[in-house]
């Protein structure tokens, strides 16, 4: 009964013989617009699927992976580097050595601000050549002041300039790292030898850690790094200098692909003034221990309680 009533009270308007109503036209228009909007919204996925394999999407956290799984991941990353950069590289998984705690010290009396350390870092760690990125930022500071507001990292003149001193700042590998505390997905953590590392494949790029670091030691990869094939450093490790994807955070790792094999970090080798001292804090005969025991040593922003592993000293 009610059906009949409704039909009678709202009759379908008939325009002409073709049967093409305004409603049909609006439906068609709506459907077209909807389809276009959907396609536009899904556009990032097309480029995403080209870059990201299903294996990578399903990859586990570094700590969750077994030996075999990790081995597969390393080979896949090597293959991807070959495809993207044309470079044959070897990516290792290097674990902390037993009885080793890394420490670093820098002599502000002799550092002349030549930025050779930053340059070496750029090459060693496969940084983007376009932005000339590096994990080390050398500040030109006013003598007698520790005020970073007055310091500049973009100086470009003969060094050392009168009245200035130079202070390279990189990740201090804090024993109480605020960057690790804030990571919502545990993509960054402190290793047993003291190095704070990042699983670049687990990082979601939220940049909380970058904001939490009081030393501005972390960098965000805005773009996929541009590196000429001939300049790619083929000696790589999963947690250190392998080429990082866009959209993840990265930082200094004390060159662990070198130092965990007993070699000196690249910035230390490059330093022409011998300002840098690196070594094992647990070895009483090491250089770093001698510096800590015999020089006037301090750490940056000690009052924050971050307990850095990177020390500055004067002669």
């Amino acid at each position: 009964m009610s059906d009949v009533d409704a039909k009678e009270s709202a009759p379908v308007p008939e325009d002409d013989e073709t049967g093409f109503t305004r409603r049909t036209a609006l439906k068609a228009l709506g459907a077209t617009l909807g389809a276009a909007a959907f396609a536009r919204a899904m556009a990032p996925l097309r480029s995403w699927s080209a870059d990201l394999s299903m294996d990578e999407f399903l990859q586990q956290h570094y700590h969750e992976m077994g030996e075999e799984e990790l081995e597969k991941v390393l080979r896949r990353l090597e293959k991807e580097t070959l495809e993207d950069y044309g470079a044959e590289v070897e990516i290792e998984d290097l674990r902390p050595q037993e009885g080793v705690q890394f420490g670093y010290a820098l002599n502000l009396s002799v550092c002349n601000g030549c930025r050779k350390c930053a340059e070496a870092c750029n090459k060693e760690n496969n940084h983007d050549r376009k932005t000339n990125n590096s994990y080390i930022r050398v500040f030109e500071m006013e003598q007698g002041s520790l005020d970073f507001e007055k310091g500049t990292a973009s100086y470009d003149h003969t060094v050392p300039a009168p009245g200035k001193y130079y202070m390279p700042v990189q990740c201090l590998q804090c024993d109480n790292p605020p960057c690790v505390d804030v990571c919502p997905v545990e993509a960054t953590w402190k290793e047993e030898d003291g190095v704070v590392v990042i699983d670049y494949n687990w990082c979601i790029g939220c940049r909380y850690c970058e904001a939490a670091c009081p030393y501005h030691a972390r960098r965000f990869n805005w773009h996929k790094p541009e590196i000429p094939t001939s300049e790619v450093n083929p000696v790589q490790a999963y947690l250190s200098n392998r080429i990082r994807p866009a959209g993840v955070v990265e930082k200094c790792h004390f060159c662990l692909h070198r130092t965990r094999k007993g070699e000196a970090p690249a910035c230390q080798e490059a330093c022409p003034t011998g300002a840098r001292v690196f070594g094992n804090l647990l070895d009483p005969d090491s250089d770093i221990r001698w510096v800590l025991e015999n020089k006037r040593v301090y750490v940056l922003k000690e009052d924050l309680g971050t307990r850095p592993r990177f020390f500055y000293f004067f002669d």
């Binding site: 030549c114 590096s134 470009d156």
Partner: peptide, 22 residues
């Protein structure tokens, strides 16, 4: 005395500061 040198180029990151001495 250790000679004065020209430093390696500065980074071109978001610290786009104008050098104060130019």
């Amino acid at each position: 005395a250790f000679p004065d040198v020209m430093p390696a180029p500065p980074p071109r990151d978001r610290y786009f500061e104008v050098p104060t001495d130019q």
